[in-house]
Amino acid sequence: MKIIVDRCKCTGLGICESLAPDVFEVDDNGDLELKSELVPDGQLTDVQDAVAGCPTEALRIEED
């Protein structure tokens, strides 16, 4: 499963990073970086929480 970031919506608030730090990280410019484009094994719940926790609804998971 693939993680998609809508760059027009994302403002780098970083809640995703605190819920799934292996996948999301806000970089030095304040932009969101995907450390993994795919949902890592065993981390689906964390990534789903990050999707739900995004205040700008910038994240989604796409089925393969």
Binding site: G12, S18, P21, E25, N29, G30
Partner: peptide, 15 residues
């Protein structure tokens, strides 16, 4: 203030 790249790392530390 303008510390987007560290704030959530600290949140994890507090957690």
């Amino acid at each position: 203030i303008n510390g987007q790249n560290v704030i959530m790392k600290y949140r994890a530390l507090i957690m």
